[in-house]
């Protein structure tokens, strides 16, 4: 606990962050899962998920955030999101068309409806969430040559 207090912002920010960051993440997941019945979707939800990690990193410093989601995991999730999306598209060939919505569409306005669209949303949110956080981390942690020497 004491170690966590050394880096990052002041105690107030940390306490508030600890209370809100879970809710932000949850809200992002909600936006992703309800992407096909309400405004939002994979991209918007993915951005919110990434922002929750960015929030954590701003308040607690890079070590805590990177312990939660290491760099290797980020790049893995990013590529995995793309591959998942592509395989959903390729699975459409089972019905004869690329990108065919081959699962039954179900009833409108229900959570479990719209066939492959929620699955695609999840794939996109993985890609966007991991990608955006990776961009943030890479830009923040970029060390200049003259800084490395010091």
């Amino acid at each position: 606990m004491s170690k966590e207090h050394d880096k990052g912002m002041s105690l107030i920010v940390k306490v508030i962050t600890r209370l809100t960051v879970g809710l932000i993440l949850l809200f992002g997941i909600y936006i992703v899962l309800h992407g096909h019945v309400s405004p939002g979707g994979g991209f918007a939800g993915g951005v919110i998920i990434a922002l929750s990690f960015v929030h954590l990193m701003l308040a607690y410093g890079k070590d805590v955030a990177l312990k939660k989601l290491p760099k290797t995991a980020m790049s893995f999730f990013e590529s995995m999101g793309a591959i998942l999306f592509l395989s959903i598209a390729l699975l459409g060939f089972t019905g004869g068309y690329f990108f065919l919505n081959f699962i039954s569409k179900g009833e409108p306005f229900r959570l479990f409806s719209a066939g492959t669209i929620p699955l695609s949303n999840i794939a996109i949110s993985l890609k966007v969430g991991a990608g955006l956080f990776a961009i943030f981390v890479v830009l923040v942690l970029l060390k200049f040559e003259w800084e490395k020497k010091e």
């Binding site: 991209f43 961009i135 890479v138 830009l139 970029l142 200049f144 040559e145």
Partner: peptide, 20 residues
């Protein structure tokens, strides 16, 4: 907008490298 995000990020990264 997503494409714009990608290009802007790339430009910012390039700008940082150029500053280096």
């Amino acid at each position: 907008i997503v494409i714009g995000l990608a290009t802007t990020t790339l430009l910012v990264a390039l700008a940082m490298r150029i500053y280096e």
